[in-house]
Every structure is written in C-alpha cells, then in structure tokens.
Lab assay of single mutants.
Amino acid sequence: SADYSSLTVVQLKDLLTKRNLSVGGLKNELVQRLIKDDEESKGE
C-alpha cells in the first residue's frame, strides 16, 4: 500500500477530500482511514 505516513496532514486531507472521506482526527487516524479505504476498494 502507499506510504501515507510520509505525507503531510495537508496532503492526507486532500486525498481524503477527493475520496469523500472524513478529514477529522489526528494524522494517524487519517492514515488509517486511507489504508482502510484502499483495502475496501480492492475488495470490489
């Protein structure tokens, strides 16, 4: 998976916004949300 932890919070929020995901929470939560979304989209 992508190394989201190396991105800035601003970059993470931009990715979340593009996916229509919540941008609330700490950086670690944003990273986990993106990883979870990646895993769910692979399952389709």
Rank of each mutant, 00 (worst) to 15 (best):
S1P: 13
S1Y: 14
S1L: 13
A2F: 14
A2T: 13
A2Q: 12
A2K: 13
A2G: 10
A2C: 14
A2M: 14
D3M: 12
D3A: 09
Y4P: 01
Y4M: 02
Y4W: 03
Y4S: 00
Y4Q: 01
S5R: 10
S5D: 11
S5M: 13
S5P: 06
S5T: 10
L7W: 09
L7R: 03
L7N: 02
L7F: 07
T8F: 02
T8Y: 03
V9L: 12
V10D: 15
V10Q: 15
Q11E: 11
L12K: 00
L12G: 00
L12I: 05
L12Q: 00
L12S: 00
K13F: 05
K13S: 05
K13Y: 06
K13E: 06
K13V: 11
D14H: 13
D14W: 15
D14G: 08
D14Q: 14
D14A: 15
L15I: 09
L15D: 02
L15Y: 05
L16I: 03
L16Y: 01
T17C: 11
T17A: 15
T17W: 09
T17I: 12
T17L: 14
T17E: 09
K18G: 07
K18D: 06
K18F: 08
K18V: 07
K18M: 10
R19T: 01
R19H: 02
R19L: 03
R19P: 00
N20D: 06
N20E: 06
N20T: 05
N20G: 15
N20L: 07
L21Q: 03
L21E: 02
L21V: 02
L21M: 06
S22V: 06
S22M: 07
S22K: 09
V23L: 09
V23G: 06
V23A: 09
V23C: 08
V23M: 06
G24S: 15
G24E: 15
G25V: 02
G25Y: 02
G25L: 02
G25K: 02
G25T: 03
L26I: 08
L26R: 12
L26T: 15
L26E: 14
K27C: 06
K27G: 03
N28E: 15
N28I: 11
N28M: 11
N28P: 10
N28F: 12
E29S: 06
E29Q: 08
E29L: 05
E29Y: 03
E29C: 08
E29D: 12
L30A: 01
L30S: 01
V31D: 01
V31A: 04
Q32T: 08
R33K: 04
R33E: 02
R33N: 02
R33M: 04
R33W: 03
R33C: 03
L34R: 00
L34C: 02
L34G: 00
L34T: 01
I35W: 06
I35N: 06
I35C: 07
K36W: 09
K36V: 07
K36A: 11
D37Y: 14
D37W: 13
D37V: 04
D37Q: 06
D37M: 05
D38V: 04
D38M: 05
D38K: 03
D38W: 04
D38L: 05
D38P: 02
E39N: 10
E39H: 10
E39R: 10
E40T: 11
E40K: 13
E40W: 09
S41W: 10
S41E: 08
S41Q: 13
S41C: 08
S41M: 12
S41A: 11
K42T: 09
K42C: 10
K42E: 09
K42V: 09
K42S: 10
G43E: 11
G43D: 10
G43P: 10
G43N: 12
E44F: 14
E44H: 14
E44A: 13
E44Q: 13
E44S: 13
E44P: 12
